[in-house]
Design a protein around this nucleic acid. Structure first.
Lengths: 118, 118
DNA sequence: GACTATGTGTACTAAGTAGTACATGATACA
DNA sequence: TGTATCATGTACTACTTAGTACACATAGTC
């Protein structure tokens, strides 16, 4: 783990804390359902990032995109994995094809699909 | 694991074996770099599917699509996961958008991208 | 100056992952 | 009839995951 996860979480939490006392390690830990010492170690990169469920809870708590936080933790949301596993050839070829495309190209694709031309 | 993985591997291997003696548990195990007893247990669902590397080697050996075999094992190829992790928002929205689309729609998309219209 | 909250250090654990090593009994063949 | 090959059963292990439990030192506060 390239240590980005813990730093990011700590930064987010401390920023929120400037406005609201309820964003201490202890209180956030309690709200997402882990021990304070564990969250402390996670933030300092002392232990690897927690499970997907806790990361999603943390993202909620910090007002961050769960997929981004999961990515920082080196993970991919299990519902995305499910989608790929259900149709491996299709999604594998799609992702490999788009891997090297710039963001705006992929996003244009998303919008076209969403606008029902398919 | 819904037990499909082992059965599928065994079926593939035994089919190949009708033509070629070299597809015994022992010899295949040796070629993919595991103990025969381990492959035997894998095929019978006695233990969970092996690591990604072994599954890919097995797919090669059996002439199967690695992504399909990985999917049967409940996994997603790590290079696909990497692609998603590098741009979580983009790929997450893309996959969630396409999740409920029929195969032919997604494949048409793949072809259009490949044909450089983007 | 006792009380409380805060962040952190130490020690431990239960379950899962990914196999190896070796022994056994059956089968084939020469 | 030995020997080589086959599939499989039993036992064990090192590593990782995902945390808990509790003690500790510090800082504010009533």
């Amino acid at each position: 783990m390239p240590k980005g996860f813990g730093d990011f979480v700590r930064k987010c939490r401390e920023e929120l804390r400037e406005q609201d006392e309820r964003y201490s390690v202890r209180q956030v830990a309690q709200r997402i359902g882990v021990e304070p010492s564990f969250l402390s170690k996670v933030e300092r990169g002392d232990v690897p990032p927690p499970s997907e469920a806790k990361i999603v809870a943390l993202a909620r708590e910090l007002g961050q995109d769960p997929d981004v936080l999961l990515a920082l933790a080196g993970k991919v949301s299990s519902d995305l994995q499910d989608a790929i596993r259900r149709r491996p050839e299709v999604f594998a070829s799609l992702i490999r094809e788009l891997r090297r495309m710039p963001d705006h190209a992929v996003l244009r694709l998303v919008r076209e699909v969403r606008d029902g031309k398919w």
